[in-house]
Amino acid sequence: MKALVKYAALTLFAIPWVIVPIWLVVVNSFKPAGEAAELGLGLPRTWAIAENYGIVLDRGGYLMGLVNSLKVTVPIVVAVVLLGAAAAWAFGRSRSRWLQAAYFVMGLSILLPPSIIPTVYLLRALSLDGGSLGYVLTMTGCRLGIVIFLATGFVRAFPRDLEDAAAIDGASRPQVFVRVLLPLLRPVLFVGGVILIINVWNDFFFALFLLQGSANATLPLSLFQFASGTLQSLNWNLVFAHVLLTTLPLVAVYVVAQKRVLAGLTEGALKG
């Protein structure tokens, strides 16, 4: 009985919290402009699916945004996870004072907000401004700290016997890294990777300052440009169609991997 009340309350809460927002987006992205302007939750009186999504794909720069988002998200996530794991190994095992000082700086980089304006200045000085490479390097530099911090704690919690045994068996350091360390760090790297993907895929602030022109625009940037193009009165049907398409790739990955994502985030993150 108590459980019944609890789940009834949770369901009541989930309706405005999750279901209505998603429904609003989906159903209004199917309506023609005039009908969507009412922002109602009813089914479309006239369906305009093909037109709306056609416009978003055609004029909204969606496909280019998708390619650009993939082009920056994949390298950032791979670089942060691999370089972060390698650095965490060094920070967790070495007793060098210099490395411990560097580890402290990595920790500060988690807490302090990135300075975006000098970043633009710096990228201009390096002739990297406006393009994807500068963005990838900046995001990698700003997101490494958290992964290093989580993974170093993990490395320290493990005895080094396994690594030593592998070394005695004649494995080179890179071999030990790939065969012993990466499998050991898998839970924490998975959690770090998940948070990173959500973070980078949805990043708007860095993209706004660092990526210029629609040729480099990632999905959030292309959504903003598209929505701002009709600023006076938002074309809600088109904006929502764009929102849906922008969110869809992440939701699709989540639906496939949700069991591991949820378990990883609730169990893997705080251990070590």
């Binding site: 070495s94 060098s96 990135p114």
Partner: peptide, 26 residues
Amino acid sequence: RAAWLPWALPAIVLVMVFFVAPFLLN
């Protein structure tokens, strides 16, 4: 000891150039 540095170096350089340097410039 010295052999650990190459493992941390790429990460240190990236954080120094793209986080710490802009921070100080700011």
